[in-house]
Each structure stands twice: as C-alpha cells, then as structure tokens.
Design a protein around this nucleic acid. Structure first.
Lengths: 330, 330
DNA sequence: CATCACATGACAAACGTTTGCCATTCTTTG
DNA sequence: CAAAGAATGGCAAACGTTTGTCATGTGATG
C-alpha cells in the first residue's frame, strides 16, 4: 500500500553503465549525446519504468511546467468551458494544470495566488475579483493572464462585449422593445461593468431607455429577487448578468404565472450548458469559452517561458444565440 | 514581467541571524525552537514575504501535499459536483488539487497516472475506465481512492445503486409500468454494470420484464439513437445510463412528437445540474456527489499520510428525485 | 560544586535533478 | 602526419528544503 520506491536517474545510470548526467541529457538534450548511447539509456529507463521526478527537475531549473487556473465558481458550467479549453491546451503542451476555486472571494483568490505561486509557472485568472492593484502586484511576481478582465500592464483574453451587447439590443429593438431592464451581478465583476457600459451605449443608439437593478447573486438562487423586481417595475425585456441568473429568473416567472416571451423577454450571457435545455430555451450571448481558456494558456506559456515582456491582449468574438425566451413585445 | 526572485530560507536565516535549519524548524517543528527565536524568525519571514518552496520541500520529504483527481469528462456537470467536493475538502486540509481530464479514455487515464504519479501524493480516480489489473498496479505505486468504481484491494467511495435502482423500479411499478428498457452507456463503466445488475434484481422482485439496449454515448448526442431505438421497441419506461443521455433522449422524443410522460416515462441517473431545468424536468437518481468527492479526498489523506494499510470502502446513500418525466402508464 | 539532563541552535548530508566545465576520443583539415 | 576542432561523456556544484547529529549553554539534582 505504501508507495513503492520509484526508479531514480541514478538507478538508470547504474543499470546503463553511464553517468547520471548522460541519462539526464538523453531526455532533455538528446543532441548532446551519441545516438546509440541515448537509445540504450532510453531502453533501460523504460525497462525500469523511470519517470523524471518533476520536483527535482523544478528545483534545479526553476520551472515546474505547471500552470494554475483560478475560477470564481467551479460549479458554474460557464467556467467548465474555460477549464475545458485550458486543460486541453495545457495537456497538449505537456503541462500540468491546477484548478483552484476562489468562491467569488477576493481574499480566497489572493490566498491561492500566494500559496500556489512558488509551485507554478504562472496563473490564468478567470473573471478575477481582485482589485487592479493586487492584480498588477501578482503579475510582478508571476506570469499572469486574465480572462474576461483587463487592467493596464497585464495580459488578457476578453470577449467582445461591445459587439455582443449591441447584438442583444439590436435584437430586442427589432422585436419592438422600447426599454430595457438590466439585472446586475456582483459589483466587483469586470465583465458586469463592461456589459452594462455596452448595453447603455447600444441603447442610446436606439434611443431606448435602460435601467439597472441589483446586484443579484449570479446563481439560480438570485433569480427570485431579480424576477420579482423586474415584474414590479413592469419591464418587458430583462437582460440578466449571466445565464445562471437568467434561468433563475425564468423559473420564478413561471412560478408567478408570467409567460415568457409573451409578457416578458429574457436574455442571458454565457450560453452555458443548460441554456439550451431549459424552458423556454434561453436567448443568450455566446462566448468562445473553450477558446478563451486555450488562448489564455498559450499566452501564459509565451509569457512564462519565452520572456515576452509586452503584455498582450486578445478580444474574442461573441454571437447572440436567439432561442425561445425572447419575442415580440406585447 | 519575468518572475522576480523569491526569498529563500537562506535569505530569511541571514536576515534573522540564525541558521537555515532554525528557520525551517520554526515553520515545521515549532516546539523544537525557543519561542522568542521563533517569533523573531516568523516576523522576518513575513517581512521578506517568504513562502517555503513546495518543490524543495517535496524533494526532501517525498511529500508534495498534492492530490490528483481524474475524471472522464470535465464538462459533465455530474463530475463538477465531485470536483467541487474534492476541491473543498483538499483546500480545507491545506492540500493542492490537480484536476485531470481523461476524456473517457483508458489510455489517457493511464498516461496521466504515470505522468502525474511522481508529482502527487495520491489519486482520486472518479468513474475510472481502467481495467482492474491496471487499477491495482496503480494502487501499488500510489495511494489511490476510487469513486463509483470498486475492485478488490483498492479503497473506494461508491453510491448505493442497489437501493437506488430499487427506488427507481418501485416508482415505475407504482405508476403501472410492466416492463422496462435500459439505455446503456460505455461498456467499461463500472457504475453502468452495477446499475444494470440492480435494475435486473429490482425488476425481478416486481416480476417486470427488463431489457437493455446500447451502448450509447453518455452525452446529449447519444440521445437520438437511444430514443429512436426505444420508440421502435415500444417501450413505456426507459431508464438512461445518466442524465446527459436522458436529456438527449427527451429532446429527441420531443422532436418526434412523443409526449413525456404521457406516452413514455424517462428516468436518468446523477441528478446533475440541468436535470431540474429541462422540459419536462427529469426524474433521476440523486447521488451525493460533493460528499463523494470530499470523502474520497479524506480517505486518500489517511492512505497517503497515515500509512493505513487496509483499503477502506464507503457506500453513500442515493435517493430518487421524482420530477416531470415519469407518469402513469397510458 | 560536580554532574547530568535537557533545551537550543548550528552544521552538514541528503533528496533527484540540471548544467557548466573539463577530459577524452574521434574527425577533419592543412 | 600533425594540429585543430568537434563530439561525447563524466565530474561536481548547485537548486531550497528537511532532518539526523553534534556542540554549546542552561538549570536541576545530588
């Protein structure tokens, strides 16, 4: 039961009749060693089931070949998309990915960055709740890439909310809606702020009125309060901070006998898993979450290993998925 | 941008005017050093922002304080529950958790176990696709705990499918159904086998007929083929390998104009996120996934650090959540 | 007052790698 | 054929810790 002793580089060296350095080079610097020697070494290594100890390797080289991905809510399917893309990209590059859950808390996030810092080569911070200053400080000590968050001097991958919000407003306007109600999420949410800004700008183009309520918890349980407030305000079109909240709103509206989209149109953000199977199906702004995760990891690789000095920033397109929750105004 | 140099134990020692060993012991073995010395050391350490390098620590002690959790499909909300519980438990114990995605492939799983092996203190393998032999081999080299999989000599946490399947069949019988159709998942799935065995036994108690079709992909896209087969067979009650497949089936049935539950009742397994919001809402067997993840991590801790020799096994209760997808037989 | 035990801190050896440097051998070139 | 240069392998130092062992100083005990 207790872990058996693994073969070390010295074991391989002894068995192969060469020096440890030769074994090491056979793996990491193949050209540096004669081809026949190398083949012999590799054969012996395979025989002994030798795997280089990543700890020892990291200690010497200072590289752990590991990245950490921190998300606010690991159970939210939206982040599952980012995790998926990041995991795929990291695995393809032969790197290990550590997932951390910050539970929507800046303090937890800060703590994880500090604790994981020395053990990883860099961080992807998705929808970080950290203040700008802390973010920059973190970026000084580690390689950092942000997803759906931006601040001066730090690399990031963000969704094109300017276009996305315009798509939403265009769609609602074309259905005859003349005013919009935004049901907002956490105040620290950068994407929430960008969405709000985009919606305001787009509404202005159409000369529509737009108000914002909230903040509401960006979860199913935030739905009832948000829905009730929307009803009380007599809204015909509500735009929710994310799909989780939107689905919570849909459920509450159904509970209260309000029909969607006949009486109220509902729009979400994220197009997460679940938005296509709820009733009615949800009209929502889709992001390329898997892409975002993958790109963030790639960016991080350049940052961490190629000493790219300039912070990079990447904007990914968004597109509106029109489903059953939006319709012509009554 | 390039990671600044972190303070090492030697830096702290020099600044505090003591030996490195004293600094080390101040952290790991506080009783071994005078209280005033220790406080001084800790103060200096905090001042310098010193964090022990986990790599170096692991190298010496052989403990990485890290566990790996491998799941077949990271995007499946069912596993999100397990991940969530495991993450919470690991974080509470001050351990790092690495998440790996095996993509339903035994080869990928094997590869990850080999690659991550030297870097972690143990594995939680959720719904492992590995053959029993490989599983035992892995358990010889590493501390291993299984979730929803069992094999002789390896610790595990499993759901009570014997009770669960009886609950399902009792429910369907009470609605007047006289025969059941099971839409199976991957043949390597241990839980699939247990579910099938349980359903057969329970059906026998009620003198009901039960057949199994498949295998189908345990994803939304497995739905159409499964649903079509069920319709062709004239089934009145279908039990799907998991909720993903069940929802796929629901969608296909709707497409084909078959009303659920009036014409066909549908049952799933997992009670994953989404099963409560689809239409109709899905009757499904709920597991304590978060519990399972947390317990698996705790078990693994005992196995890895307390040299518990005896493999342990834990059965978690299940309960049927009756929703809109099951009804009286026509 | 001498002895003993114990508390405390320092020294140094590991842990498993990588890598700079040197020594040897082989190949090339004039 | 000699000299220069390239290819190849070994030695040893480093990476940042932990931990066994030893030396010192303190207080207690007889």
């Amino acid at each position: 039961m207790s872990p058996r002793k693994r073969a070390t580089i010295t074991d391989v060296a002894r068995a192969a009749g060469v020096a440890a350095s030769t074994v090491s080079r056979s793996f990491t610097n193949p050209d540096r060693v004669n081809v026949t020697t190398r083949e012999h070494v590799l054969e012996i290594a395979a025989e002994l089931g030798y795997t280089p100890n990543p700890m020892a390797r990291a200690l010497e080289s200072g590289r752990t070949n590991t990245f950490a991905l921190l998300v606010p809510d690991i159970t939210n399917p939206y982040f599952a998309g980012i995790i998926n893309g990041a995991e795929r990209s990291a695995a393809a590059a032969g790197r290990t990915l550590v997932i951390g859950n910050t539970k929507e808390s800046a303090a937890t996030e800060q703590h994880l960055v500090k604790r994981l810092g020395p053990a990883v080569d860099g961080f992807v911070l998705a929808a970080s709740r950290l203040p700008d200053d802390d973010l920059r400080k973190a970026a000084e000590l580690n390689a950092v890439t942000l997803v759906n968050r931006a601040t001066r001097g730090v690399s990031c991958v963000v969704a094109d909310y300017a276009s996305g919000t315009r798509q939403i407003v265009d769609h609602l306007a074309s259905l005859g809606h003349r005013s919009l109600l935004v049901l907002g999420g956490p105040p620290e949410s950068w994407s929430g702020a960008r969405r709000w800004a985009g919606l305001q700008a787009a509404a202005e183009l159409h000369e529509m009125k737009v108000r914002r309520f909230g903040p509401y918890s960006p979860t199913l349980s935030g739905g009832p309060a948000a829905a009730d407030a929307a009803l009380a305000a007599g809204a015909t079109a509500v735009i929710c901070h994310n799909d989780m909240l939107a689905i919570g709103v849909l459920r509450r509206l159904q509970e209260r006998g309000v029909s969607v989209p006949e009486q109220v149109s509902v729009v979400g953000f994220d197009d997460m898993f679940g938005s296509a199977i709820c009733t009615p199906t949800l009209t929502t702004l889709a992001e390329r979450t898997a892409d975002a995760g993958a790109q963030a990891i790639e960016m991080l690789g350049r940052l961490a290993y190629e000493r790219v000095a300039e912070p990079d920033s990447l904007v990914l397109p968004t597109h509106l998925v029109v489903r059953g929750s939006t319709g012509q105004v009554a």
